[in-house]
């Protein structure tokens, strides 16, 4: 049986004045239907570019993408257009991703009109009303403009728009990071409910590790365009293996004041993704780096069933025989 989504060695490079920028540099993963894959990493690690490249919002430089077993690595213009019915995106900022000159109704009905998904005006109104109900937006907002609404409600419009064509796959790019915690919880619950009701598959991109833990089945940790660790949400938080993941998890300030804190402070900052030198991307900041780390690219290796790590010294660091 073929996977729902399969991505092989995906690369996205940008040419800049200072050389080639490796935004996404050889990422491979697969997704089952109904699964949520969390993608975490710090700014500039390529997580948003990855999400947008998978959807063909950006043209991949190299690599293969299979959606429901079909090769969509190099779609024709028409195919690319049709894919929008199956895959959608929710953006981070509900303030800038909605057209300020369109009403809620116009925003939600736009995809339906583009794809001629409704026969007449009556049906359109019905669909819009249904979508607003699904995402918990009261009917009275149908003719309001985005600026009249708060962040949580705006993000609900973004979700309704993404759901309009009944897609099976949604990339959620930091959908709750612009929201206050009490509103964030409402939106996260909504997204979980929708996933259950509509059997949606999510790629959930975020920098917030507690959010990603809450919502994901599996998690990929990215660093400078590459995946360094990929495993189930549970084992990632119980026993992270990659030194970067360990540092990242230890850096989260947590609100339980009785939890012991063992913070791993990293040296320096993320290096430039332009013409990266050979070797492990993380080597310069790693406390365990050896000579090999600066010369040879580590590859993803399955250390435990379903737990992949890209690190030369993973066995020594974690005392794995």
């Amino acid at each position: 049986m073929s996977k729902f989504l399969e991505v092989k060695n995906l690369k996205k490079y940008y040419e800049t004045n200072r050389g080639t920028l490796h935004a996404v540099d050889g990422v491979s993963f697969s997704l089952e239907k109904g699964e949520t894959l969390g993608v975490v990493g710090e700014s500039g690690c390529g997580k948003s570019t990855l999400g947008q490249t998978v959807l063909h919002l950006r043209k991949p430089t190299e690599g293969e993408i299979y959606f429901n077993g079909e090769d969509i690595s190099n779609p024709t213009k028409k195919k690319r257009h049709d894919l929008c019915q199956h895959m959608q995106i929710i953006f981070q900022d509900p303030f800038s991703s909605l057209n300020p000159r369109m009403t809620v109704k116009q925003i939600i009905s736009e995809p339906l009109k583009i794809f001629n998904a409704v026969k007449n005006k009556g049906e359109l109104e019905e669909r819009v009303a249904k979508l607003m109900e699904t995402v918990g937006l009261a009917k009275r907002f149908v003719n309001t403009y985005p600026h009249e609404l708060d962040g949580g409600r705006r993000q609900r419009i973004g979700i309704a728009r993404a759901l309009a064509l009944e897609p099976s796959f949604i990339v959620c790019d930091e959908p709750v990071s612009a929201l206050d915690v009490s509103i964030q919880a409402q939106v996260l619950n909504l997204m979980q409910d929708l996933q259950e009701q509509l059997n949606l598959t999510y790629i959930f991109i975020t920098h917030d590790l507690s959010v990603v833990k809450h919502i994901s089945n599996n998690i990929m940790v990215m660093y400078l365009g590459v995946v360094v660790e990929h495993t189930s949400s549970q084992s990632l938080f119980a026993a992270p293996l990659h030194p970067y993941t360990k540092a990242l998890l230890s850096a989260i300030p947590h609100s339980d004041i009785d939890m012991p804190r063992e913070r791993i402070l990293l040296r320096g900052e993320i290096s430039s993704p332009i013409e990266p030198p050979p070797g492990c991307r993380f080597a310069k900041r790693c406390n365990y780096a050896t000579e090999k780390c600066f010369t040879e690219d580590p590859v993803m290796e399955e250390i435990y069933p379903g737990h992949e790590v890209a690190c030369h010294n993973v066995k020594e660091i974690n005392a794995i025989p």
Binding site: Q184, A185, L188, N189, Q192, K213, S255, D256, M259
Partner: peptide, 12 residues
């Protein structure tokens, strides 16, 4: 309402 990294909660 906060997802807690040290706990497993089904729903917030």
């Amino acid at each position: 309402s906060l997802p807690d990294i040290n706990k497993n909660v089904e729903r917030l």
